[in-house]
Design a protein around this nucleic acid. Structure first.
Length: 297
DNA sequence: GGTGAGTTAACTGGCTTCAG
DNA sequence: CTGAAGCCAGTTAACTCACC
């Protein structure tokens, strides 16, 4: 048997356009559930459900535990985030993620506790893509893990639909997820496909990306759309001399985004300053990402 | 053509935890 | 105490394209 056999190959799915994200069964694929793709595909009913669920989860986490500084109960609330091996995604290639959920819970809680927006109860950090963009310490892997756990029932239902469509047999498994109506963690029985005795959960293709440094892209976006505009408006000589602006032969002055970004870029924990100074820029950035940054192939 | 901006992905460093 | 591994974040390298 080939070492990298895919879900579609093993279950003999023949289709020109597979709508789910095909994963290897014997190892993990280096990909993540991307919150930017979630926020930008809300016209799809299932994805809108995912968006509402993760927003509800983050709202509760921020309001009940981060703003109040209730670390003990916050960590307890987050202790349900287990290694989501059934998705076959992540950094490690082996699909054997370690049981570090306690440490991970502390990482997430402390990262939010150190974020100016989150502790003040500002709603920006109730949205997953803003947490990924603005909260230092929470990267692609951790955000992907949170989404996988919180929305496990939604993706399990999706997987069942895919299996029915392609006649893949399913078996009963117990899963844990964050329940929207009770605002608590719950378990339930689900019918899921199986490989080597372990359950598998699939994602819609539209939600998987191979990893993208959004904080760098936001820096670039700010340099190119806001700081460049300001520099061009004032046309200061020092900007010309330092190479931030460039005069073409015909006399027109252009902004050199690369130089501007190099001069003004901020580390992740200070990106909040850009959000405050350039009002509306994160919404514009989200919209920009819709047209420019796509799902993994 | 040569130069360098713009863009993407891969690499690297550094911090943290876990196993032995 | 030490080495290995996980993960975030910053850097470099490789490529394409516009300008001169």
């Amino acid at each position: 048997m080939k070492n990298n056999i895919l879900f579609s190959q093993h279950f003999k799915i023949q289709s020109d356009s597979i709508e789910f994200f095909d994963i290897p069964l014997l190892k993990d694929k280096r990909a993540f559930i991307c919150p930017f793709l979630i926020a930008n595909n809300r016209d799809v009913k299932l994805i809108n459900e995912v968006y509402n669920r993760i927003t509800q989860f983050l709202t509760k986490l921020n309001r009940d535990y981060v703003v109040t500084g209730d670390r003990i109960n916050g960590l307890n609330f987050l202790s349900h985030l287990h290694e989501a091996n059934e998705y076959h995604l992540g950094y490690s290639g082996s699909n054997k993620g370690k049981a570090v959920s306690n440490f991970r819970a502390a990482t997430i809680y402390d990262a939010l506790q150190n974020n100016k927006f989150a502790v003040k109860g500002i709603s920006i950090t109730n949205e997953a893509h803003n947490v990924l963009l603005l909260v230092k310490g929470i990267g692609q892997d951790i955000m992907s893990d949170i989404l996988a756990n919180v929305c496990r029932d939604i993706f399990a239902d999706y997987t069942k639909q895919v299996c029915d469509k392609y006649s893949v047999s399913t078996y009963s498994f117990k899963i844990e997820y964050f329940d929207a109506s009770t605002n608590k963690w719950q378990t339930k029985e689900c019918s899921l496909p199986m490989f080597n005795g372990k359950k598998i959960i699939l994602l819609p293709r539209k939600l998987a990306c191979s990893g993208r440094a959004y904080h760098s892209l936001y820096n670039w976006f700010i340099a190119s759309n806001y700081i460049a505009r300001d520099l061009l408006n004032f046309k200061l000589n020092e900007s010309l001399e330092s190479g931030l602006l460039h005069k073409l032969e015909d006399g027109t002055i252009r902004a050199v985004v690369k130089k501007i970004n190099g001069t003004y870029r901020k580390p992740k924990q200070e990106l909040i300053d850009f959000v405050i100074r350039y009002n509306g820029s994160i919404d514009r950035f989200l919209n920009y990402s819709k047209d420019n940054y796509f799902e993994a192939s």
